[in-house]
Structure formats: C-alpha cells, structure tokens
C-alpha cells in the first residue's frame, strides 16, 4: 500500500520537522494539536523554516506554496480516519500518549500503522491500550528532520513483522531515509550513544583537560563530526540531554549515565543552548552562532 495521506499529532519541534518533510515529499499531511493556537503556531514555524530554505536556495517560492497547500488543519482525532499512516509526536507524557493511541486505534482502519516518535517511553506500554498492539511501532526521527536521513524504527514487544515491513518501506521509499531496526530499549541506539559522548565531554571539561572550544574542535575536525559535543548539546537543548541521561541512569542504574554536575547547573540557570540564546556558546535568534 502506498501512503499518500499521513497524520501528524503534536506539532512541536519534531512534529513540525516531520510534517514539513512529508509534505515536501508530496504527501498530504493532516495535522492535529491540542488547540487551534498551537496548530497555527506550528504551521507558522514550518513556514519560517521553508523561508530559511529559500534563502539557502534549497526551495523556490512555488515549491513552498505547494508544500504549504499539502498541510491540512484538523480539529478532532476522528478527522485522521482518512490517513494511511499516523505519527504521534506530542510531549513525552505517557498518559497523554496512551489516550491518543487509544483513540487512534478506535478511529483508524485496521491496516493503518500507528507510530510514535517517542525517544524515551515504552512502546509496549503505549501499545497496551490498543486492541491491535501489533500495528503500533516507533519511528524516531533525528533533528533536523529535513536534513538527517536516518530513522530508528523501534519494535515494541508485540509489533508485527508486517507492521515493521510497512514502516520500513514507508521510511525508505516515501521519505527516502535509511531506516534501522532497533528493539525497545531506553535511548535506542542514537540517543544512548550520543548522550554518553556528550556526558564524557563534560567530564573532560570538569577535569580541566581542555577548553570547550578545544574539545569541540578536537572531535569535530579529528573525527568529522558536524558539531563538537558541546555545540551538539546546545543544539539538542541541554534540558533534553539532561532528561535523556537521567532517564537512562534510572533505567540502567549504571554510573556512566549519571549526568554531569555542570550540565545540571546550566539547565538550572536556564542556559539551554541554541533555543535560549546561550549554552556553551551564544546564538542569535536564527540559531546561528555569534
């Protein structure tokens, strides 16, 4: 089955990225959020992101118009019944997500794949509220979605092979991204490895081995990372890095996941990285380093 209509629930940073990417690939995207204001704010952000791409010559005005025309505002979850693939990407609140999956399970036809973009919560638990847990799966996109061609396809305990194959086909053929299969586990592959990398960089900094700038240069130039660990953390959001580390620390109980003290202090000070204008580096409102 080819997917032509996709639903996206929750239009925060990741939801915007996913919706924009799907619409750019020619799909009709049906958007839903808690309130009309949030929906409008999300769509405005998508428009800003498209404008930025026009500045970079990645897009033309008429292409932007086509993308915007493929975004459809919905009011109720029932409106998503026409979609062939639905991705939930609301905040990481288990109870709220459970409610959404319960309703989606009710309104969507049996052949529709229900995916969550969660990076920390248990899919098996989300699936437990549905009558057909075999069609629940995780699709963990990496920020920025339009640029990073990788998706972790996460299998819960009851996710069927058919659901996995359909999702992989959707990810690789429709969105043109590489899909890797991972089994449910805190942090999957990407978040687990990269957060440890950032945390170790913080320890190196704390020990006075090298400066922020030099650690970033060493890893960026030495190992061809696009950003060094500190700028990377700034761009993820230091609060998000902290939350992921804390959760993995809790789940695995291993000391290596214990968040660095420096990280905690910065989050308490509201120095969250690019989004707050200051983290390890300073940023302007477009998120460019100053």
């Amino acid at each position: 089955m080819t997917v032509r209509k996709a639903g996206v629930i929750g239009i925060g940073t990741m939801g915007q990225g996913i919706a924009e990417m799907l619409a750019s690939k020619g799909l009709d995207v049906y958007l839903l959020d808690q309130s009309e204001d949030k929906l409008e704010a999300g769509i405005t952000q998508i428009e800003l992101s498209l404008d930025k791409q026009i500045e970079k010559w990645a897009l033309t005005q008429s292409e932007k118009k086509q993308v915007m025309n493929r975004l459809h505002r919905m009011n109720r979850i029932d409106d998503l019944a026409q979609c062939e693939f639905v991705i939930e990407t609301i905040t990481e609140d288990l109870e709220a997500k459970k409610q959404i999956f319960e309703e989606l399970d009710r309104v969507c036809g049996p052949e529709v794949v229900l995916a969550s973009n969660t990076s920390t919560l248990s899919l098996t638990e989300l699936a437990s509220v549905t009558i057909r847990p075999d069609r629940v799966i995780g699709t963990h996109f990496v920020y920025p979605v339009y640029k990073i061609d990788l998706v972790e396809i996460v299998r819960g305990l009851q996710t069927s092979d058919e659901t996995f194959e359909r999702t992989k086909q959707f990810i690789e053929v429709v969105t043109n991204k590489k899909g890797v299969m991972v089994f449910e586990s805190p942090g999957f592959v990407t978040t687990r490895l990269i957060c440890l990398f950032i945390n170790e960089a913080l320890h190196v900094l704390e020990e006075g081995v090298a400066s922020v700038d030099d650690i970033d240069s060493a890893m960026r130039i030495g190992y061809s990372f696009q950003y060094g660990p500190f700028e990377m953390a700034d761009r993820f959001g230091l609060d998000a890095v902290l939350a992921a580390l804390e959760r993995m620390f809790r789940e695995y109980g291993e000391l290596k996941y214990r968040p660095s003290i420096v990280l905690k202090k910065m989050v308490r000070a509201g120095h969250l990285g690019a989004k707050s204008g200051i983290g390890f580096f300073k940023y302007d409102k477009d998120g460019d380093r100053t």
């Binding site: 970079k56 010559w57 990645a58 033309t60």
Partner: peptide
C-alpha cells in the same frame, strides 16, 4: 562559504 548541502547547491544552480 555558505555551508550548503549537495541538494541545496543543486537546487541553487537549477532553480535559482
């Protein structure tokens, strides 16, 4: 200079 990706520079030369 402009930190462009392959697809961005392709689009620049073909469409802009």
């Amino acid at each position: 200079k402009e930190d462009l990706s392959v697809s961005e520079v392709n689009s620049m030369l073909n469409k802009h």
